[in-house]
């Protein structure tokens, strides 16, 4: 839905990195982007690789 503020497993703040990752993933190797963003552990990495933004779609419907 919306990117978590912190990694669910280790607690590292990751929310602020999402927009850069989303932008750069289009024409760069995700592995290198994740390395440069400082996401070393596989918990944070899988969080970024598997996330889908859905707030834009959901906001059209009534809560």
């Amino acid at each position: 839905m919306i990117i978590p503020v912190r990694c669910m497993s280790c607690g590292k703040p990751v929310g602020h990195l999402w927009e850069e990752f989303k932008e750069r993933r289009r024409d760069e190797d995700p592995k290198e982007v994740l390395d440069e963003l400082g996401l070393d552990r596989y918990c944070c990495r899988s969080l970024f690789l598997t996330h889908t933004d859905l707030t834009g779609k959901v906001s059209k419907f009534k809560k």
Partner: peptide, 15 residues
Amino acid sequence: VLYDRIPITEMDENQ
């Protein structure tokens, strides 16, 4: 805040 680009929520028009 330590990081000022953490998205809290996303708003549409009139929200």
